[in-house]
């Protein structure tokens, strides 16, 4: 019997130690997911958390914060002059500031002022490229430098992609501030990944085959970052044997032709989206050098021929190829 009297205190001590350990080391929690049609796409929020109410309300506030930002941009466009930008709400100013840095990072290949040309393009079936005259007139209003030089004049900025990225980032921050450590905010393939998977492994993100969107070409294992892809297969039409897609080169006002898709890993979804567009326009040679020179940025280029693929050094050992079928 003596050793039984010894075991009882030991059991209590073990219980207490377990509780102390547990309070520091909370388990991974349960999986929650919801999607919402917003920003012209499907936004998916996946998160792992404890407590149903907490998770549900966090997802709802994430959607609300996205809706607020979305309401500031009409079809991804905003009409603004360089001097007048200060009168806009904070998210708009923030997006314009980021657009300016992206313009510089991509050597002008990402240029928000492309808006006055992209609104000439209609990517519905049976449409045609814009007339050369109107294209020329539109191009006169393209160039962030021009905008800065004529600070009083209104320009049409196409910030659809990066505004979407910005909204995703804001939503992800909402989740992070609420204490969620493992979450994905995915806006139609532009996504911000918080932390790692709840099992401690990196997130595994698949990349679509640009010509067979039902297939995947490969995947990347990444954590605590953002991923975005610009592909020529999202909006396009055929006209007289030519294929016209929605990623326009600000120099020519015509679709950029060197890639089928560019996937970018960057710290935020806004940067990732802007860089994906810019690097797509720059192509797999110039774009590759730019991507390589940037810290915390990796890129995957799929060439226009669809056969070659080029990865920046930092992503090579985190990329896995998938056999196509």
């Amino acid at each position: 019997m003596k050793n039984l009297h010894f075991v009882l205190p030991v059991a209590i001590v073990v219980t207490l130690i377990s509780i102390a350990f547990l309070s520091k080391h909370r388990s991974q929690g349960e999986f929650y997911r919801d999607s919402c049609l917003i920003m012209d796409t499907v936004v998916d929020v996946n998160l792992w958390g404890k407590g149903d109410l907490d998770a549900r309300s966090a997802i709802d506030s994430a959607f609300v914060s996205i809706a607020k930002i979305d309401s500031l941009f009409k079809e991804g466009m905003v009409r603004v002059s360089w001097s007048g930008r200060e009168h806009h709400p904070i998210p708009t100013r923030e997006v314009l500031r980021l657009a300016d840095s992206l313009y510089r990072l991509t050597l002008g290949a990402f240029d928000p002022t492309i808006g006055s040309v992209s609104r000439l393009w209609d990517f519905s079936d049976g449409s045609q490229p814009p007339q050369p005259d109107s294209l020329k007139a539109g191009l006169r209003m393209v160039g962030l430098e021009k905008m800065k030089n004529v600070p009083g004049k209104d320009f049409i900025l196409d910030v659809g992609g990066i505004a979407k990225g910005y909204a995703i980032d804001v939503a992800a921050e909402v989740l992070r501030n609420r204490g969620f450590e493992s979450a994905i905010v995915n806006g139609g393939g532009d996504m911000r990944l918080l932390g790692k998977r709840p099992d401690g492994k990196p997130w595994r993100i698949a990349i679509r085959d640009p010509r067979h969107p039902g297939n995947l070409i490969g995947y990347i294992d990444v954590e605590d970052c953002a991923v975005a892809t610009s592909g020529d297969y999202e909006r396009f039409f055929f006209y007289e044997g030519g294929r016209y897609h929605h990623i326009l080169d600000p120099k020519t006002g015509m679709p950029a032709v060197q890639c089928q898709s560019v996937t970018v890993v960057a710290p935020t979804a806004c940067i990732a989206d802007g860089l994906a567009t810019g690097l797509f326009v720059l192509g797999p040679r110039k774009g590759f050098d730019v991507a390589k020179s940037l810290e915390n940025v990796e890129a995957i280029f799929i060439y226009a021929d669809g056969d070659s693929i080029r990865l920046t050094p930092g992503i090579q050992n985190r990329f896995g190829e998938l056999a196509s079928n």
């Binding site: 499907v42 998916d44 996946n46 995915n186 393939g189 039902g214």
Partner: peptide, 29 residues
Amino acid sequence: DMPGDWIACVPNGILVRISGESGFDAVTP
């Protein structure tokens, strides 16, 4: 045809999703 994949008609507010897990945490784009 992939589990987890979806198509949306955003203007008409309709989302079509195939149930199941693709084995990936997300697909881009």
